[in-house]
Structure formats: structure tokens, C-alpha cells
Simulated scan of single mutants.
Amino acid sequence: MPLRAFLLALLVTFIWGVNFVVIKLSVDGAPPLLVAALRFALAALPAVFFLKRPAVPLRLLIGYGLTVGLVQFGLLYVAVELGMSAGLASLLMQLQAFFTALLSAAVLRERLQPNQIGGMTLAFLGMLLIGLGGTHQGGLLSFGLVLLAALGWAVSNLQVRQAGNADVISLVVWSSLVSPVPLFIGSGLLSGWTPTVQALLGGGLGFWAAVAFMGYFNTVLGFGLWSRLIQQYGAARVAPLSLMVPVFGLLSSALYFHEAFPPLKALAALLVFLGLLLHVFGGRWLSAWQARPPLSSRR
């Protein structure tokens, strides 16, 4: 991969990692589902007027929009508003890789590889420490919501695979039209209509800057660059770089919010990250090991 493409991929992972800090800031004093609704409204507008509708069935377009908007990000925003830290949320959301593998095995009959099973084991041990060891803010509810959000991400990954060769950017933009209204209604029901309307009408420059960052930079620009890089250089080269997302998420949260990592929390985060590394790279390591010539031939 050329240096320019590598730097663009790092830029995307930086945007996606820092985005968790932006989410934390945006839901501080504003209903979380309203923030999510505005994010997807801006992701769709005005881009939808310049992109052709993706060549996918309407049910898939709507299903993808609801999965990403309501489940993945709706639940994530609520979890962060309940107290889940930005850094830990950025790490736990990467569990989507394991959920995707499990769903692919169950739905598509894809065989789980030994490195995937080993990676899941390490990551789930880390999750157990986080969930039961009191190493997170917001309680078990916020922890469970983030896991459900990661599961929603995994479901959306399978939906993208069902979309075949459809333009991913067009799919992201057009599907973003689906979730704003349900999210807005959910905000009124969950947080109350008065706070929802007040936040919508009274949001300051900082609030709208955060929403614009999430809608345009994180969603449209991020997914646009990422999809283009995958098309040019292949998923095998580009996708593993997504492991930098929780690195940037943890660092930015530590710098901005002074998020502390006591030993138990640090151990849990390390287990999850090591599990991700084994899941992504373990197959290559095993293949390289098996391809080594016998010891006798190297003498």
C-alpha cells in the first residue's frame, strides 16, 4: 500500500477514534437519540441529492438504515449518555468483529478458524472483567447497551455483504434517510418532548459543530475514504488498520477526559485488544508458521 493511502487510512481511523469523544461531548446535556437523529439527517443531506440510489432491494436499504441508526448508534449514544466512557466504548465496539464471525458461522455456515476462537476467548475474558469487575462507568446497563450496539454493527456487516457490489457510499447516504424520524420519536419518548425540542432549537455552535463532525466527517468522509481504499487496495490490506480506532479512541479520551485506567481495567482492555489482534492476524501467523521449511532443511 502506498504511503499516501496508508496515511489516508490512518486519518479515517483517527476520525473514527476521536468521534467517541465527540459523542460524549454532544450527549452532555442533549438527548442522545436526538443527537443520533441529527447525525444521520446531516449524513443524508444534501448528499442524497447528488448520489444515485444504491442498487439494492428497498427492504435491505431500510433494514440497513434501522440497524445502523437505531441499534448500532442509537444504543451507543444512550450508553455513553448513561456514563460509558468514550475510550472504553471505542474498544468494546470493536467486538463487532467477533459478532460478525459468529453470525457468519450461524447464518452463512462459514467455519470459525482456530485464531478466531482463540481471539474470542481472550476478548470475552476481558469483557467479563469489564462487566463484572466494576471497571466501567454507567453500570451493567450501559455495558449491555454497548454490546448490543456492537451486535447491531455485526448485523449491518452481513447486510452490506448481501448488498453485493452496490456502491457502499450511496448505501450509507441513502440509508441515513431511514433512521432520523424513528430516532427523533424515540428521543421524545425516552428523554421527553420538551428537552428534545429545547435541545433542537437551542443548541449552540459547539453542539452543531459536533453533530456536523459526526454526520459529515465521521460518516460520509470516513466511510467514503475507507470504502475507496478497500476498493483500490483490498480489504485484506485495509481492514486490519481499523484496530487503530480503539487506540485513537482510548488516547483521545485519556487526553481530553483524563480517563484513568486502573490495573484491572487496563488488564481487561489489554485482553480485548489482544483478542482482536489474534482474530485479525492470527490466521496469517499460523499460515506463516506452517509454511516454514522443516528444521532439518534449514541446517
Results as ranks from 00 to 15, higher is better:
A5W: 12
L7M: 13
A9N: 08
A9W: 04
T13R: 05
T13D: 12
W16C: 04
F20L: 01
F20I: 09
V21E: 08
K24V: 12
V27G: 03
D28F: 12
A30W: 10
P31M: 09
L34T: 08
L34N: 10
L34C: 03
A37T: 10
F40H: 06
A43T: 13
A43F: 01
F49D: 00
P54D: 04
A55T: 11
P57W: 02
L60W: 10
L60C: 04
L66G: 01
G69E: 00
V71L: 14
L75D: 07
L75A: 00
L76S: 06
L76M: 15
V78Q: 01
V80C: 09
V80Y: 03
G83L: 00
S85L: 06
L88N: 02
L91R: 05
Q94E: 15
T100N: 10
L103C: 04
L108Y: 13
E110L: 08
L112G: 09
G118Q: 14
T121G: 12
F124V: 07
L128N: 10
L128T: 15
L128W: 14
L129K: 00
I130L: 15
G131T: 04
G131F: 14
L132N: 13
G133E: 14
G134N: 11
Q137P: 07
G138M: 05
G138Q: 06
F143V: 09
G144K: 05
G144P: 01
L147A: 13
L148D: 02
L148Q: 01
L151K: 13
L158H: 06
L158R: 07
L158Y: 01
Q159V: 04
R161Y: 06
R161A: 01
R161I: 04
A163S: 12
G164D: 00
D167S: 09
I169C: 13
W174S: 13
S175M: 00
S176D: 07
S176Y: 11
V178W: 01
S179Q: 03
V181Q: 07
I185N: 10
G186A: 08
T194R: 14
V197A: 14
L200Y: 07
L201H: 03
L201Y: 04
G202L: 02
G203H: 05
W208V: 06
A209N: 06
V211P: 13
F213K: 12
M214H: 15
Y216I: 14
N218S: 14
T219N: 12
G222T: 00
G222R: 00
G224A: 09
Y233H: 15
Y233E: 15
A236G: 11
R237G: 11
A239W: 13
P240Y: 00
V245L: 08
V247P: 08
G249D: 04
L250C: 03
S252M: 11
S252K: 07
F257S: 01
E259M: 02
E259Y: 02
P263I: 06
L270S: 15
L271A: 09
F273M: 05
L276F: 02
L278D: 05
V280L: 10
F281K: 08
G283K: 09
P293E: 12
L295F: 12
L295D: 12
R298Q: 15
